[in-house]
């Protein structure tokens, strides 16, 4: 019944530093690309056809790059965030590599930014501000501040944020995880907190959100992933219901196919979570050197990918248009990126 554990499709070496972040860009006309941000301040752009670096961009003065993203509409612009408190916008079209713009965040934390493209030209950028609990949202490229969100209660540092646009057409909402383990839902246009839930006893290290199912999942430094939902009926109130059970659901129950709200991991610590585009798979980057793959629907454990010899810090699913080519990339502190090709066989359904 159970197949032997999978091995990597191939690996990319030579980043020269621990890999903090990965970002795929595969649906452009030219060859599929993978961006990676390293701890040495370089952004590597890997060509997935040749499996070599196409370009190395260094723009954060040697400070660790903690976030890389590519703007969909203007496919030549990427943005990156470094520990030098700058978010840079790059123009890479036609072989260029120059900083178009940069924003000073003032945040000393590791919170990754979140970007939401409202129109082809305009986009919102959310980032952690100078104060530890502060989240700032600005509109780019005009750089006009939209709002600053500070919770009333003391929740500690902002750990992760996610900006999203609900289908109902109301203004964008923001999910934020804080140091004390709370997850908050903010209404950006109202600048008000809609709901709050305590997802973890420890700081929320990472989270990801499925905007179609209105369901998110967050990881922490403990052995548990918590899944929570934004209530569909009370969308206007944005009710955030955390379905976390106090007692973790064991794996044997998970295998019976019961819908569960918690997953217990074998080893503690998750640094990143990622849901595949078709909403079927969830991948977690573990501090225990392993990437875990779950079915997103029921959070059924599917695979444990063992390759890295150090903490895995980033996972990403590729956005290939042909589902059969889809890849899972994992970047680790051991300076390698592993690429996995799994669960692509039933691709026609997704």
């Amino acid at each position: 019944m159970s197949r032997p554990a999978p091995s990597p499709f191939y690996t990319l070496r030579g980043a020269g530093g621990p890999l903090n972040t990965l970002h795929f860009s595969c649906h452009g006309g030219d060859s599929p690309l993978l961006f990676s941000g390293s701890g040495k301040g370089a952004i590597h752009i890997w060509n997935l056809n040749t499996r070599r670096t196409e370009k190395i961009v260094e723009g954060h003065a040697g400070s660790s790059v903690i976030w890389v993203s590519r703007l969909q509409a203007t496919d030549t612009l990427i943005s990156s965030q470094g520990r030098d408190m700058q978010v840079c916008l790059w123009d890479l079209s036609e072989g260029r590599s120059e900083v178009v713009d940069s924003v000073w965040t003032g945040s000393v934390g590791f919170c990754q930014c979140s970007i939401l493209e409202t129109t082809p030209r305009n986009y919102l950028l959310a980032f952690a501000g100078q104060q530890s609990e502060e989240i700032k949202i600005i509109e780019l490229p005009s750089k006009t501040p939209v709002c600053t969100l500070i919770p009333d209660a003391k929740l500690g540092m902002v750990m992760c944020i996610k900006l999203w646009q609900p289908n109902s057409g109301a203004g964008p909402l923001l999910l934020a995880g804080y140091e004390d383990g709370s997850v908050l839902l903010w209404d950006v246009t109202q600048r008000s907190k809609l709901s709050q839930a305590k997802a973890h006893p420890e700081p929320v290290m990472c989270m990801t959100f499925d905007t179609k199912r209105l369901r998110g999942i967050s990881g922490s430094s403990e052995k548990k992933l918590s899944s929570w939902m934004v209530d569909r009926q009370n969308n206007l109130q944005g009710q955030l219901t955390c379905l976390t059970h106090p007692s973790p659901v064991s794996r044997s129950q998970a295998l019976t196919g019961k819908i569960q709200e918690c997953v217990t991991l074998v080893n503690p610590g998750v640094s990143q979570l990622c849901i595949r585009g078709d909403g079927k798979l969830l991948a977690s980057a573990g501090w225990d050197h392993r990437v875990r793959v779950f079915g997103w629907k029921k959070l059924r454990p599917l695979a444990v990918l063992q390759y890295h010899t150090d903490m895995v810090q980033s996972v990403a699913f590729s956005d290939h248009q042909d589902p059969k080519e889809r890849l899972l990339a994992a970047g680790s502190k051991d300076q390698r990126i592993s690429l996995w090709s799994i669960y692509n066989e039933g691709a026609d359904t997704g």
Partner: peptide
């Protein structure tokens, strides 16, 4: 219908505590 069941899990016995 759209459940995880179509995805067969891999062998996860190697997933030991480190």
């Amino acid at each position: 219908l759209d459940s995880d069941d179509e995805l067969t899990p891999y062998d996860m016995s190697g997933d030991q505590e480190i």
